[in-house]
Simulated assay, not measured.
Amino acid sequence: MALVTAAVVVLDCAEPEKLAYFYRQLLDGEPGDTSTGHVEVRRADGIRIAFRRDGVSTPASWPRPENSLQSHLVFLVDDMDEAERRVVGLGGLPTETRDPTGPYEERGYSDPAGHPFTLRPALPTAG
């Protein structure tokens, strides 16, 4: 039996309900467990992310060098352009885009609360 059965990333933010809505729409998720005091989003495939209220939360300044990147999320997507339209339509902001295409293309964004994340193309599975 595995000692750890699940992991949940928890992001601090000033307005967890609003940020949960952003990620619920981005991930096609559903509201999750709130018994811990966090606002959670979960998907049927087991992906879970939660948000904790922090009244003094400030956005990260990444990718600016004066504030190092402590952590960020990476989402693998089938269609980079469609994913970008969804992110921006939900209130996310582009922070870094790269011109080259191919399996190493990635685009950086911040969510409405300023947390950094990256979109990368999902690589096709062999078979």
Score class of each variant (00 low, 15 high):
G92I: 02
D33E: 09
L73F: 10
G46M: 08
V9E: 09
F51M: 05
E40A: 03
D45A: 08
E17I: 10
P100A: 12
V56K: 13
I49M: 04
G32C: 00
V87W: 03
V8K: 05
R24C: 00
W62A: 01
A60S: 09
S68Y: 15
H38E: 09
V56E: 14
T36Q: 07
L27K: 01
E17D: 13
V56T: 15
R64P: 01
K18W: 09
V77A: 01
D28Q: 03
D54T: 07
R48T: 01
R53G: 09
R86P: 00
G91I: 02
Y21H: 06
H72D: 04
P94R: 11
A44Y: 03
R86E: 05
A14I: 04
D99S: 06
P59S: 15
R85V: 08
S57V: 02
V41I: 13
P31A: 12
L19D: 03
D78R: 14
S57E: 11
G92H: 07
D99A: 07
D28F: 10
H38C: 09
H72G: 03
A60W: 05
D33A: 04
Q70Y: 15
S68V: 15
R24D: 00
R98H: 13
C13V: 12
G102F: 08
Q25W: 00
P100Q: 11
R24A: 01
L26H: 03
L73R: 03
G89P: 06
T34G: 07
E66H: 14
R86M: 12
